[in-house]
Design a protein around this nucleic acid. Structure first.
Length: 644
RNA sequence: GCCGAUGUAGCUCAGCUGGCCAGAGCAGCUGAUUUGUAAUCAGCUGGUCGGGGGUUCGAAUCCCUCCAUCGGCUCCA
């Protein structure tokens, strides 16, 4: 007999060789129907794999991340089986689960799969799923595995096998399909009840553009039809919130082929929104002791040679601008930090001067590859809410913590309540990607880890995600429909101060090197606004909304009264417009609702005679009639409460 | 940059098995209406069908090429 400990702490006895599925059955039939896999002593196993020693087990269902990935991993095998039936001779690459579903990279030998083929693949998958075929796990000697795929002619699997050690190789077989796979898998294909192929794309074998391009099929599956329906509804919702669509509808920004791809044009309403955000942060920064600075849009090549950016990115930048007579080369500014280093150097610094905090809403230009551009989230010209703090080593942690406070203040004001902090460290296996000494890297990484701990942030650590000059702390926010976005970033840098030979005089009258902190709470205004639009579905917080009220006269007879109301509201810094069009009130309301203006003021004969306004709130409806002053105070206090 | 898809009026889209002057709704303009909480009515304007080349008696429709957009890959200071 063996002792099985469950998550609630209870211990049950079972015969050796019992499976997680049997354990589930002993608890309840319903649970057994939903168990996809099990975590055995922390390792995810097949639910059908015999357990032969005492163990702590967690039964996994579709509600667990590991349960989902097991389901989707098994679904990838099912899709491969369907494809092998429908497209004989297909060679298979890899087929992993991903955040939402799974994909399989396949080589169709010149055949093309398009969206029209999805239906028949889905149908075949469902047909195979209904057979309820068991996923059999088999441990295989390496030579047999190689022989199997040689016979099948699958060079990708042979390539994968090369990297695996003998004695460590497992095959999984379901129905007529056998795949090289570490597992684990769901018990049988019958668990898969709903299937949807999402899209098809090209992907290089092993992600290397020198290799052959394979066809990547993305799909998702569920154990219930309803889950699939819900998922598709969520995708629809995401489409409705797409900032590119809303940006056009709300007249916030535009792109023009003539101006150039990836170069956003801010329309008046978008510019107003952007300006509000800038003022908001500017105010908070000045309170926190930041000093605004301004630097030009281009910089001499030597500046970027010193910073190391030229070596790292020079080849992939926009071509340099050359002066006609001197032949000097200038680059469009790709980041602000080198300029700020030179500002630091413009006067000698004492330890008493530190920290100094230079802030700039600096517009930068980067040559992003054509295929990379995407709405406002990936552009070629954008404005960073950048600042560089130069401090003594003993001040790093305090400064870093203060920056964290500022970032969280910004998130709160903009209704981002769900976030985690990602600590991005150097890839210890590939140090050549980075500049600077091991000692400096260690100091910087420690500073971030300690600050995050002190601020009690929920963190995840990612190796290899650091910037080339230093580690960083990135804030990943979850939006209103659960999608994750990377926004603010804070980076500790011991390297640029060295490259620029930045100094301060210490109390010992010796020269010392300051530490630099790069930070941007928004990241870039463009990206931030894109995320904000999608987060609030275009319904901006009142204080940010390009128009806060629109005044809707019942007929043209009341346009003058409407204009008078607007003038009064302007005294309270309330932004608004009068809809003077010759339209019926229903039409005006509809159009204003669609423009997502927070408040509508309906004015007609009654209001004019009583000196009032009828207030209608966007998305909610009629709130009744108010004195003009009363309304102005109401929304003024609403704005104050939202911003604090 | 690479793979795949798409590109018709300011916007959303129909037409695309080649064949009468390329259509609709919204927006815009003009006029009527002067309106009470999500679309008043009528008329009009507007497109060298992404650009260029080709096949054909004839191309929005078929082919080639370039450009842009979308979904991915690689990249992201």
């Amino acid at each position: 007999m063996i002792n099985i400990t469950l998550p609630d702490g209870s211990v049950r006895q079972y015969e050796s060789g019992t499976t997680a599925l049997q354990i589930a059955q002993s608890i309840s039939e319903g649970l057994a129907r939903n168990v996809l896999a099990a975590k055995v002593n922390g390792e995810v196993w097949d639910a059908t794999r015999p357990i032969t020693a005492d163990a702590y087990i967690v039964l996994l269902t579709i509600n667990d991340a590991e349960g989902k990935s097991t389901l989707w991993h098994s679904s990838a095998h099912l899709m491969a089986e369907a494809i092998e039936v429908l497209y004989p001779g297909t060679k298979f690459g890899i087929g992993p689960p991903i955040e939402n579903g799974f994909y399989y990279d396949i080589d169709l030998g010149g055949k093309i799969i398009s969206n029209e083929d999805f239906k028949k693949i889905e149908d075949k998958m469902l047909e195979l799923a209904r057979q309820g075929n068991t996923y059999f796990r088999k441990e295989i000697p390496k030579k047999d595995a190689v022989a199997y795929f040689k016979e099948k002619g699958d060079e990708y699997k042979l390539d994968l096998l090369e990297g695996l050690e003998d004695g460590n190789i497992t095959f999984y077989e379901q129905g007529n399909f056998t795949d090289l796979c570490r597992g684990p898998h769901i018990p049988n294909t019958g668990f898969i009840k709903a299937v949807k192929l999402m899209n098809v794309a090209g992907a290089y074998w092993r992600g290397d553009e020198k290799n052959k391009m394979l066809t990547r099929l993305y799909a998702i599956t569920f154990t219930k039809q309803k889950d699939l329906t819900d998922y598709l509804t969520l995708l629809e919702e995401a489409k409705k919130r797409d900032h590119r669509k809303l940006g056009k509808e709300l007249e916030l920004f535009a792109f023009s082929e003539k101006v150039g791809m990836g170069l956003p044009l801010w329309l008046p309403k978008g510019a107003a929104l952007r300006e509000r955000l800038v003022q908001f942060l500017q105010k908070a920064q000045i309170k926190s002791g930041y000093l605004p600075v301004v630097t030009p849009h281009i910089g001499n090549k030597n500046l970027y040679i010193t910073s190391g950016h030229y070596e790292k990115y020079g080849a992939d930048s926009f071509q340099p601008i050359r002066t006609p007579h001197e032949g000097e080369e200038f680059f469009l500014k790709p980041m602000n930090c080198p300029h700020h280093c030179e500002i630091y150097k413009s006067s000698p610094k004492s330890y008493k001067d530190l920290p100094v905090r230079y802030a700039e809403f600096g517009t930068v230009y980067r040559y992003e590859q054509a295929g990379e551009l995407h709405g406002l989230t990936r552009v070629r010209g954008f404005t960073q809410d950048d600042a560089h703090l130069f401090c003594r080593p003993d001040q790093v942690k305090e400064e870093f913590c203060k920056v964290i406070d500022l970032v969280l203040y910004v998130f709160k004001a903009l209704n981002f309540h769900d976030y985690t902090a990602q600590i991005s460290l150097r890839d210890p296996g590939n140090k050549s990607k980075y500049i600077g000494s091991d000692e400096n890297w260690h100091l910087a990484e420690q500073a971030i880890i300690e600050s995050a701990k002190e601020k009690e942030l929920t963190t995840v650590v990612e190796l290899g995600e650091a910037a080339f000059y230093g580690p960083k702390l990135d804030f990943m926010v979850k939006d209103a429909i659960g999608r994750k976005w990377q926004l603010g970033t804070i980076q500790v840098d011991y390297n640029l101060p060295e490259r620029f030979e930045l100094e301060y005089t210490g109390s010992d009258n010796q020269k010392h090197r300051p530490v630099m902190i790069h930070r941007a709470p928004f990241g870039s205004l463009e990206r931030f606004i894109a995320v904000l639009i999608e987060h609030c579905a275009g319904k901006f917080p009142l204080w940010l909304s390009p128009e806060q009220v629109t005044i809707l006269p019942i007929s043209e007879k009341y346009n003058n009264y409407a204009k008078k109301v607007l003038e009064l509201l302007k005294n309270y810094d309330i932004r608004g417009l009068v809809d003077e069009r010759n339209e019926k009130i229903g039409k005006k309301i509809r159009d204003t609702e669609l423009q997502k203006v927070p408040y509508m003021l309906v004015v007609g004969e009654k209001e004019e005679s009583e000196n009032k306004v009828s207030v209608r709130k966007q998305g909610e409806g009629d709130l009744g009639s108010f004195d003009i002053e009363q309304f102005a105070q109401m929304i003024t206090s609403e704005i104050e409460s939202l911003k604090s």
